[in-house]
Amino acid sequence: MLQITADVFSGRPNPTWIVDDEQEARATLKELSRERGLMQEAAPTNGDLGLRGLFVDVISDDVAADIEVPSSLYLPLAGQAGRAQELAERLIAHLDGAKAAVAAVDGAPALEEGLRDFLTQQLRAPIASRLSVEDAPVTQEPAGIAAEGVATAALAVTCTIDLAAYNPGFWNNDATVRRTNNCYNYAANKRTNTFAQPGRGCGRIYTAITCPEVTRGALCDGLHRRYNCFPDSEKPRYLVALVVAPGPGFIDFHWYRKMKEGFWGHKPGSTAVRNVDNSGHVITNPETCNRGPYTRFCGYFYTCRSTRIR
């Protein structure tokens, strides 16, 4: 038997269905084994909304006896098309089988009847939760940033960046996820559960909490300064902002990420993701919002697919 789980929700449990027709299960596994390049062994760690992928778990030992596949696979779908989408359609089609079942979801509206249509719709618009936009210089950098020596790249170019839909539930609903991911995880949209630190991903963590040093660590992890564009192959490319609390006593760094809705989201330490500042106002500009002790604005950066944080 195979168990298929749609990685689609962030607040409620994901829907799961079983393929218990042995021939169907084996045929599906063989097809997946021929497309190993499209599969991963674990789910991605970003918080995109929509159908992110499909888990396929082999839950009986006879089905895969002579087929070379791990017992657990993940078919990522965000930004994918072509063969990955065809495979996904086949896996979703198993929902129509007489023996297919959808796991009960306590207290949530039933999705069984419309689930296939819902997932198919999500599949055909897999990145609807993300928006690509042009990021062009519109104003001069505020005075003082250049003095920090970490100003945005002095390139008069327009970059295409990506803005994700605000999805705080991905970070807030699970207490462990909330506690073990910080502002840097949220800015990079990578849930590592390591309370990520700039520079640790590349093995050269910051040596002081200053704009230049935290910037150095972040660039080492693979971020770019704003207007130093990433190619389309590096999607999703998020616009983020770095600030520092210079002390005395209170010395720390903090990150914000621009969201599809136009505001900025952030995650203060192990607390919940939010889109408001210390005055309770929705953040439309991280340079001017109330940042409490994080008074030093270091600059804007891009994160991307290959950014490695830890």
């Binding site: 910080n182 502002c183 840097y184 309370f195 630190q197 700039p198 909490i209 935290v214 209170f250 720390d252 760094f253 903090h254 990150w255 952030h266 995650k267 203060p268 330490g269 192990s270 607390t271 994080y294």
Partner: peptide
């Protein structure tokens, strides 16, 4: 001591 965002709390 719950005060930091980027660094781990003391």
């Amino acid at each position: 001591l719950d005060l930091f965002s980027g660094r781990p709390n003391p």
